[in-house]
């Protein structure tokens, strides 16, 4: 039987729902709270209130691979340089959590991968240190400078160019996804990214998908909308500018090198051509999370096979 692409994609979305992983989510929340409380105690008045960011905060997460992000806003005079800030928090976190987690330096964050527990759960929390622009200014403008530890797209190692307002990023993404349709597309794009190891940052996926909806008449079924988003990315990724809502001076498309952009264009073309040739290929590019197979939810719902006027046949009762 031919694959119904829309039905399959709806199932992909269902199988990747975060609510399937409530237990794991709770463990993430608890770990994040532990880290937050530890950092607040350790840095005391040298930081402003740490806060959550990342996909979960923006409701665009998928359950196959997710982590929690914790942004730690340092006061301007807490360290001499951004590098000092980064090195310090990395050392502090390593010392405190090395027994229970692998602590590793990442592009702009410190990653904590907690050891697998008895239930096979592994908690990932990224701590993103940022420094306010001037002493006390964060409370007014929420702007932070991030330390770029290693080459990040076109951002050079040791660069302090990554100035941003993470609060504004979260608010922006949330407010522009009210329809739910954009969120669906973002989550499907993430499923592709995770399963096919695309170098796209989640934040870039969010911004470019929102842009696709702004620029194009994205209409029709789930597949038709997804196809239009993919075609938009294919056409635009090489040249598009994606200003960071937290700092219009940052272009989020700069997180990809031109080689990575070309690779993504080629991969999207392959994906579209293969699915065009054979509907079944949609299962390869957008697989269902087999841990949570999509069972049609019949409970609590009247079902209609088809809309329209229903003419019931003659019947007999006794």
């Amino acid at each position: 039987m031919a694959t119904d692409k829309d039905k399959h994609l709806e199932c992909v979305l269902l199988s990747h729902k975060m609510t399937h992983e409530e237990k794991l989510l709770k463990k993430h929340r608890n770990r994040r709270t532990d880290i937050r409380e530890f950092l607040q105690k350790h840095y005391s008045t040298n930081i402003h209130n740490p806060f959550d960011s990342g996909s979960y905060a923006k409701n665009t997460a998928v359950n196959k691979k997710f982590d929690f992000d914790l942004v730690v806003p340092f006061k301007r005079d807490a360290h001499n340089t951004l590098k000092d800030m980064y090195d310090d928090i990395y050392a502090v976190i390593s010392e405190e959590f090395q027994e229970e987690a692998d602590v590793r330096p990442q592009k702009v964050s410190v990653g904590l991968v907690f050891h697998q527990d008895d239930e096979g759960h592994q908690v990932n929390v990224d701590v993103v240190p940022g420094r306010e622009l001037n002493q006390g200014q964060y409370l007014d403008d929420r702007k932070l400078n991030l330390y770029v530890r290693n080459t990040f797209g076109v951002f050079e190692e040791g660069s302090d160019r990554l100035r941003t307002n993470v609060n504004a990023q979260i608010d922006n993404i949330r407010s522009r996804m009210e329809s739910g349709e954009i969120r669906k597309m973002i989550r499907l794009m993430k499923v592709w990214k995770i399963n096919h190891h695309q170098p796209l940052k989640s934040f870039l996926i969010e911004l470019i998908t929102i842009k696709a909806f702004e620029k194009e008449e994205v209409q029709g079924s789930v597949w038709e909308k997804l196809k239009m988003v993919l075609e938009f990315i294919e056409d635009q990724i090489r040249t598009i500018s994606l200003p960071d809502p937290g700092n219009s001076g940052n272009d989020v498309s700069d997180t990809l090198t031109s080689i990575e952009k070309s690779m993504i264009v080629q991969n999207i073309r392959n994906l579209l051509d293969r699915i065009d040739e054979d509907n079944e290929m949609i299962k390869f590019y957008f697989p269902i999370n087999e841990d949570f197979p999509c069972e049609e939810d019949t409970q609590g719902k009247y079902k209609i096979r088809e809309e329209g006027v229903i003419i019931p046949p003659p019947v007999r009762f006794g």
Partner: peptide, 17 residues
């Protein structure tokens, strides 16, 4: 049996009469 007949009938496009 009439209710089963209705639910299975191709012209009846609701599944839960």
């Amino acid at each position: 049996s009439t209710l089963v007949f209705l639910a299975d009938h191709p012209e009846v496009k609701i599944e839960n009469p």
